[in-house]
Design a protein around this nucleic acid. Structure first.
Lengths: 338, 338
DNA sequence: CTGACTGGCGCAAACGTTTGTTCCATCGTA
DNA sequence: TACGATGGAACAAACGTTTGCGCCAGTCAG
């Protein structure tokens, strides 16, 4: 039953029912009595205004899109949950899309999302996304927020951590212990956050001056197979590094696997620092030193900015970048080199 | 720009544009020339029919809801990704909701989803959901599918594993090694799947007859804190079990933590079998023996059934339950009791 | 007694599609 | 020449809301 049928049933105008059910009863001076009558009948027959009709008329539908590269990545699933919950509090639903780390799929999905009549969009881009994604985003018909990965050439508000500083954080932790050869396992060389993290590592090394340790880099993809391959490449070298930093969250799994297969004793023969804290980080062997991102805060910020933009604010407060700091969680996977 | 503006621009009728853009050009005998002209202009101006208008008219919007208890639980995030991807192939979008394992939130969300004009619904209920959820689901205005957890009293198609058999599988693996005292760490005692898994364990024990081992049960919630507490309760007993089965995916984390704190040597002093295979299952210490669910297959089945229902089939093929088998992945976390 | 005001509500347009029906040429045939 | 077919496209109703405006009856002051 829709509100016009309900109106007919109660012998009032559709408009009256609409005003009551959308909470504008007093604004339009509907009498208490009529309001009560409508409310009760609506409850009795489970009548709720159809969002499609309302959306059509209002030009808003109370829903934003959320595009992530991989929902099975704990970083993004935590992000998704937080964003969804914060937005739900504000009466906004979330449509989820997962690009499976594939730029083509991402572009498809984005186009699809933009053709839908959403109120806004939160995009955590696949790292490698280039000019095509940017240009697509630029003509977004509604407020858009970039999450996790910075995209040059798009002036949407961006929420991310300071990846460069995070890279330095990871490297310094190893340098202080005297490591002289450090391996970096990248997620994807084309990814902006990956490059920034690596740059951060290099910053830290350069600050050591002449005593600057060796830096070995490997990796060309986020997938489990690619991570494994990169770890193998790093660990079967003659000049095997005494420590590895995995620049992407997934990289650590392959690294641990390979190290185990090669019979490398952890952490004595190989120290490890992993990006992204996970529930199981303290439980693997050895317990992992990780770089942890403030996911909740980032999601809160995203929801906050987006909903303020939905309320029609173009204020400077919401524009620009919002950069958070990552923190190092130290555990026994790092030690002095043998 | 919408299709009526485009029509005006091209000096054709809206209906003509609509028929071309929704792929019904030849059905309505639009000439090649007109079709081309419209197609090109549509591409040029990025015109796509507004789903709201179309949805309103058609009564369908090309979107289904997906309600899960916890998207950060790898089991559900894999499920979500698979479902989303399979449905996307069929041109259907997915709206995600996360109830955070809270029955109240779940009910709220469900009502919300049902008031939206969706085409269908996939629900993985919070275990404890009772009659209220069932009665809400019963008056669902569109096809609904139950995932992972069976709900008595709702005749929607259900997709799940045989939890009872899976419980036996876990128990047998320990019994064969001669364990005489087994602890079970439940997710939530009110959850149907939890009860089934426990029943499966009891089945296996009873088959041993007189030599039936001790069974200790603990746990009253899915949260990390509750899991920890349950593990503590189990491990600080005088008659500490020589093996633990964690009946819910999350339980193993707390168990490992507590075992480590208590200085229990794994697996010698305590064997472990965990429900739900995870990427890190082989990498923790000790590598975990797990019960693995065929997530992809389940998601595929869900998408298949739902989309066949969307095509208006009420066939017996899609009704009823679809029960899958779990498998045991054996690793070194189980051994003979000391 | 008249006029202005107000509380309470209905009217109707608009949002952007889809689709059954109608209409107008054009063509082939008788 | 006249007439039925047929291809091609326009017309208009319907989907379910929201909201500016107008209407009516009552109230109150002048």
């Amino acid at each position: 039953m829709n509100i016009s049928e309900l109106a007919q049933h109660l012998d009032v105008a559709v408009s009256t029912v609409s005003r009551v059910l959308s909470g504008n009863a007093e604004k339009y001076r509907i009498s208490q009595k009529t309001e009560q009558r409508i409310r009760e009948a609506a409850k009795k027959f489970h009548v709720v205004p159809d969002p499609l009709g309302a959306g059509l008329r209002r030009g808003k539908i109370g829903m934003v899109g959320l595009l992530v590269p991989d929902i099975t990545n704990p970083f993004f699933s935590h992000l998704a949950r937080a964003v969804e919950s914060k937005l739900r509090n504000r009466g906004i639903a979330v449509q989820l899309c997962d690009s499976n780390e594939d730029p083509e799929t991402e572009l498809d999905l984005l186009r699809n999302l933009m053709s839908r009549r959403l109120d806004g969009l939160i995009v955590a881009p696949v790292g490698v996304s280039g000019e095509q994604l940017a240009s697509t985003l630029r003509r977004s018909p509604f407020p858009t927020i970039l999450l996790d990965r910075i995209l040059t050439g798009v002036d949407a508000p961006t929420i991310a951590i300071d990846n460069r500083a995070a890279g330095s954080l990871a490297a310094n932790c190893l340098l202080e212990l005297g490591h002289t050869s450090i391996g970096c396992l990248r997620g994807n060389p084309l990814s902006r956050s990956d490059r920034d993290r690596l740059a951060g590592v290099e910053d830290a090394l350069q600050r050591k001056g002449d005593a600057s340790p060796n830096l070995l880099v490997s990796g060309e993809g986020y997938s489990a197979e690619q991570s494994r391959a990169a770890a193998e490449a790093l660990l079967q070298r003659e000049d095997r590094p005494s420590a590895i930093i995995t620049l992407s969250g997934q990289g650590i799994l392959g690294t641990l696997e390979v190290a185990r297969e090669f019979g490398i004793s952890l952490p004595d023969e190989l120290s490890l620092v992993a990006f992204d804290e996970q529930p199981w980080s303290p439980l693997v062997h050895p317990p992992l030193t990780t770089i942890s991102q403030p996911i909740e805060k980032m999601a809160e910020k995203a929801a906050e900015i987006l909903s303020s933009q939905l309320d029609g604010e173009t204020s400077a407060q919401s524009a620009g970048s919002h950069i958070f700091e990552a923190t190092l969680i130290k555990r026994s996977s790092v030690t002095i080199p043998c």
